[in-house]
């Protein structure tokens, strides 16, 4: 095993180009467990901690450019207004120690369906800034997750940042685990109201081979809110609408039975979380008037 220590982003990209098998390590949450337990012996380990710009974020007019290694703790502390859903999700990531080191780049790089950031990222919407010595490209989050622990990165690419839409409305995140802290999701759900476009977006974690959006549910709710004029009236969402939204979210999932939970429970829980988080976000939207 060889340890690569690029001192700059350009050096990192050059190293990745030279050694496409190099495994990038930042927060270490996934990579070190695999090494400690003998699941992985990469030929090259590439430390990204020295590339300081990965730990920085920039707040623009419509988006936040969030460095791949900005620790979850910083997201919770500094980006609660711009990225409320992701801030809530960040708070549920593992333990305080891990939140101090892990960032969104790790969740995206690993692309596990159980990564806590994914549902919030999908609901908020945005793009992954992938870079290589060949250049930089923007990959929409919707196209990023390809399969179980597979993503759209090319072997020579690294994640520089994610560009996330600043919240124009309330967002929520909720995750079921069988412990009250430090737990991997049995399943998770993110929702974002986008009053600027009068749309609703969602994200589902741990209930399909990849993180997914519940698109039919989104379309149904977007249409229902529109038809009833609720964006303007800020009236309550009828229980029947919330119920159908919940059912559609549950139906969007494609979960399995595993040691953490059953498929049928996952569907059920997604429905409950969808109804509740819709309730919380919509109430916040109404209260904001």
């Amino acid at each position: 095993m060889e340890f690569l220590r690029p001192a700059s982003w350009q050096e990192a990209l050059a190293a990745k180009a030279e050694h496409p098998a190099a495994v990038p390590i930042a927060g270490g949450t996934d990579v070190m467990v695999e090494i400690n337990f003998d699941h992985r012996r990469p030929a090259y380990l590439m430390d990204l901690n020295r590339v300081t710009e990965l730990q920085e974020w920039e707040i623009g007019a419509d988006t936040v450019r969030l460095g791949a290694s900005v620790p979850y703790t910083k997201i919770m502390e500094h980006l609660r207004t711009e990225l409320p859903g992701l801030a809530l999700a960040s708070h549920t990531v593992a333990s305080p120690q891990i939140r101090n080191r892990g960032g969104v780049g790790g969740n995206l790089g690993t692309a596990s369906p159980a990564g806590d950031a994914h549902p919030a990222l999908l609901a908020g919407g945005g793009q992954v800034e992938a870079a290589s010595v060949r250049g930089t490209r923007m990959i929409p989050l919707d196209d990023f997750y390809l399969g179980v622990k597979r993503n759209a990165l090319e072997p020579d690419e690294l994640i520089r940042a994610v560009h996330l839409r600043k919240a124009s409305g309330p967002q929520q995140f909720s995750k079921v685990g069988t412990r009250n802290a430090m737990v991997i999701a049995v399943c998770a759900f993110g929702i974002a109201l986008h009053p600027d476009t009068r749309t609703v977006r969602t994200g589902i974690g741990s209930a399909a081979p990849t993180p997914i959006r519940a698109r039919t549910a989104e379309e149904f709710l977007t249409a229902a809110l529109d038809e009833a004029g609720l964006w303007d009236s800020r009236g309550p969402v009828p229980p029947s609408v919330a119920g159908q939204f919940a059912d559609l979210v549950a139906g969007a999932a494609n979960p399995i039975d595993d040691v953490r939970g059953t498929a049928s429970y996952r569907r059920h829980a997604l429905g409950v979380m969808a109804r509740r988080t819709l309730g919380w976000t919509w109430q916040e939207y109404r209260d904001a008037n």
Partner: peptide, 9 residues
Amino acid sequence: PGGLSNTTH
């Protein structure tokens, strides 16, 4: 119930 995972208010 659910703790930090924010499942119920």
